[in-house]
């Protein structure tokens, strides 16, 4: 049964990277509780546009929780307070009539604000380019069981591979560290035989790039794991540390 609620938004407005931002209060009346959070913003933007005002800029793409493009800090929580969901999968039924909702962009030195709620997360792409891949020679498909992978390892690798690179871990981290992201990307390969040949080079290259991009240092606050929409575990961070030490102290990679 659809219900309609009236909301007040306090939205971060910022013209560009240079300009100082500020909160703007915008009313959002008559919002269907069946809408997603982003659909609610669409409705608000339509009104703003018709009134000749600047619509709120926000990131989005798939709107089904798989691409990692959306994200904002809603009432102090990246992707909102609902566990295990991206902002596009957060529905308005989780809000009440008369609520005031504060919406801020993800904040980190490595994530520059482009406009309003949109942030530049290309620092993540740089980290992936540094080593978040495996090199394979193309050719005929291998037999399915040519490389034996134990089921539990496959599961762990899949859990890590769930990371959609949205940046909520960085946004949630009191230190703006990117360790959960990097640990998921390293783990998904480190756990599988296909990832082992380049494991040492990958761990070192990705950690160095992470540092170069200006992310903070992990202090094991575990806020990332609590906010991750894919519920990636910090056991991956311990694995990244192990991979990094093995690579640094045990391999010939410099």
């Amino acid at each position: 049964m659809s219900k309609h609620i009236n909301l007040t938004l306090k939205v971060w407005r910022q013209k560009n990277q240079k300009e100082k931002g500020h909160f703007e209060t915008i009313s959002a009346p008559d919002i269907s509780t069946e809408m997603s959070f982003l659909e609610m913003l669409d409705v608000v933007n339509e009104k703003l546009t018709l009134a000749g005002k600047e619509p709120i800029a926000f990131d989005h793409d798939c709107r089904e929780g798989i691409c990692g493009m959306c994200g904002a800090v809603v009432n102090g929580r990246p992707h909102g307070a609902l566990k295990g969901t991206t902002l596009c999968q957060l529905h308005m039924r989780h809000f009440n009539d008369g609520d005031t909702i504060a919406i801020e962009p993800f904040r980190a030195m490595a994530f520059k604000i482009i406009k309003d709620l949109t942030v530049d997360r290309s620092a993540f792409d740089k980290i992936i380019q540094a080593g978040g891949y495996i090199s394979v020679n193309a050719g005929g498909a291998q037999d399915a069981n040519a490389l034996p992978v134990p089921q539990d390892k496959a599961e762990l690798a899949m859990d890590a591979a769930q990371c959609i690179g949205c940046g909520a871990c960085v946004a949630a981290c009191p230190n703006a560290a990117a360790m959960l992201f990097v640990s998921a990307k390293v783990s998904q390969f480190a756990l599988l035989p296909q990832g082992r040949p380049e494991a040492a080079r990958r761990a070192i290259a990705m950690v160095r790039e992470m540092d170069r991009q200006g992310f903070g240092n992990c202090t094991n606050e575990a806020e990332c794991e609590a906010e991750c929409p894919k519920q990636i575990s910090i056991t991956n961070i311990a694995r990244l540390n192990r991979e990094f030490f093995k690579a640094s102290f045990g391999s010939a990679v410099k």
Partner: peptide, 20 residues
């Protein structure tokens, strides 16, 4: 120092998620 510098502009509103 580095962690303080990693977020030059802090959140106006930030809540803990239960990890800290």
């Amino acid at each position: 120092y580095q962690n303080w510098r990693a977020r030059p502009q802090s959140y106006e509103l930030k809540k803990r998620a239960g990890g800290r």
